[in-house]
Structure formats: C-alpha cells, structure tokens
Simulated scan of single mutants.
Amino acid sequence: MVAPGANITELDFSEQVPLTLKQGLNVINLSYGLEEPVSGYRLEQSIVDAARAGAAVFTKAAGNGSVAVDTLADGDIDFLSLDLIGKQSAIFVGALERNGTPENKAKLASYSNYAGSDSEVQNQFLTVGVDSDKIGLSGTSVAAPVVAGYAAILGSKFTSATPTQIANQLLDTARTDTLLNYNPATYGRGEASLSRALAPVLIR
C-alpha cells in the first residue's frame, strides 16, 4: 500500500532455497524471526550474506517482546536479528503507537522491541507509526513493510543509489522531534520520514 508501483514478489521462508535477487533495487521485508541459528538455514544465511554485501535493502521487524532487539524474550531469541546486526543494508523497524508530530509526539508501542544499549543496533534502528485502531493490525511485522515501501519509493527517485545508500538515507533523515522523550536506546535513529528522505536532489 505504501509503494503500489513497486514490483512485489512473495518470498516463502518455509522453502529453504537461497535468496535470488532481481535486476535493479531489491527491497526485502523480513516480518518474521528465527529461533535457531541462521547457519542451519540456507535462505536466512543467504539473506545475512546479502545484507553484509549491501546487495539489497532489508527491513527486519524488530519483534514484539518488549525487549531490546538482541535479548531474550520469553526464553527465545531471534537469531536472524542477531546476525543482521552491523550489516550495511539492514534496518530494524520498531512500532510506534501512531505517527508522531512535533506538537503531538508519539511513543513506542507497548509490545514493540526497542533498540537497546548496543550502538550498532541503535544505528540501524527506525520506528514508524502503527495505528491499530485505524488499520486493524498491529506489531512490528506491520511496521517493517512500511519502511520497505519507503525504500522502494526512494529507489524510484534515486535510481543510481546502492541499497546501502538507500538504507542510510532512511536512517540519516529520521526524525527525533516527533518522539516522546527521545532516547536512542528506545527509538534508535528515530521515526522514519519519507518526505525528508526524498528531499535532496541526489544522495551519496
């Protein structure tokens, strides 16, 4: 719904085949977690390898355990998130209760995982509003595809930009003035702002 002009392909994570990228900008939304080491899964290992190489933009749902991305929730940990920490074209996405404004600041949804104390996670963590009362859905699995849509829109303007440049543009233009008691340990880089990300003539 965010980028209706994008070519969308469904990826079935139950089929353990390596990720196949298409020509042009690839944006891969990861609205799921993995509770076992990535090394045992061909698809997820190829995703981590591609994020390390900056071959596509990856938007990863931060999780819904009300904990830091890299910690246990109910005795489990998301190994896919752990392996995406520090990868150049991966973005973790947390959920706000709604989109914020400077006059009406938003806060993190009570269920959403947050960035935590790891500066690498903070540096690649964004938030976006999920107004469950309006859309009937909630969770960071709803927030992540919004940022994926933003990345696709950026790619349609900045056609020569690399996936890492697109990811960095979203991270670098995030807003902090729309968030209640902004703290990078909670909100990472801030609230994703498509208008700010699209503002320059070109990105480097």
Rank of each mutant, 00 (worst) to 15 (best):
V48Q: 08
R204S: 12
E97F: 00
L19P: 00
E191I: 07
V147R: 01
V201K: 09
A6C: 12
L25C: 12
L19R: 01
L25M: 12
D131N: 15
I77A: 08
L34Q: 13
R42W: 03
L180D: 14
G5S: 13
A73W: 15
A95N: 03
V38T: 15
A62G: 09
E10D: 11
Q124R: 05
D118V: 11
V38C: 04
F125N: 05
K105A: 10
L84M: 10
Q124D: 03
D131G: 02
A174H: 06
L43H: 05
V146R: 06
F92E: 04
G116M: 02
T178A: 10
G24P: 08
A95L: 09
P163H: 02
A3Q: 07
D74Q: 13
S66Y: 15
G63M: 06
D131E: 09
S141F: 07
V2D: 01
S138G: 11
T9Q: 14
L84Y: 09
G129Q: 06
D70I: 13
I8F: 12
I8D: 00
K134S: 06
Y150N: 04
E44V: 11
L179P: 06
Y150K: 05
R98H: 02
R189S: 09
A109I: 01
L171E: 02
V48S: 02
R52D: 12
N104Q: 13
A174K: 08
K134L: 09
A144Q: 01
G33E: 07
R175A: 06
F13S: 06
P145Q: 13
Q88V: 15
Y182E: 02
S31G: 10
Q169L: 15
A68S: 14
D70R: 08
Y41M: 00
V67D: 08
L126Q: 00
E103M: 12
P37C: 11
Q165I: 04
D70E: 13
G86Y: 07
A143W: 12
Y41I: 07
S119T: 15
L19H: 00
D70W: 04
V128H: 00
S138M: 09
E97A: 08
V128K: 00
P18G: 10
